[in-house]
């Protein structure tokens, strides 16, 4: 299992891009931290998730 925003998921082996799609996040409106380090947007498609990973997806909404 791995943790995404505090919840457990069995997404081992999936890439960050696949996880974002699965959970319905638009890539242009998020920042993603994997184990406390930013995942560069260019690496969403090549960053694979492993057992025990902590993923934090910050989703931005409009207004300011």
């Amino acid at each position: 299992m791995l943790t995404i925003n505090g919840k457990e998921y069995d997404f081992r082996g999936m890439t960050v891009a696949e996880v974002l799609k699965e959970l319905g996040y638009g890539e242009q409106r998020v920042a993603v931290e994997l184990n406390e380090s930013i995942v560069p947007k260019a690496q969403y498609g090549t960053t694979t998730l492993f057992e025990g990973d902590h993923l934090e997806v910050v989703r931005f909404v409009g207004g300011g």
Binding site: Q28, R29, I38, P40, V58, V61, G64
Partner: peptide
Amino acid sequence: FDAADQKAMLVNTVLE
């Protein structure tokens, strides 16, 4: 910022 994609752009750029 106001727009969500611009917020994400700034945050990602600064963090990266």
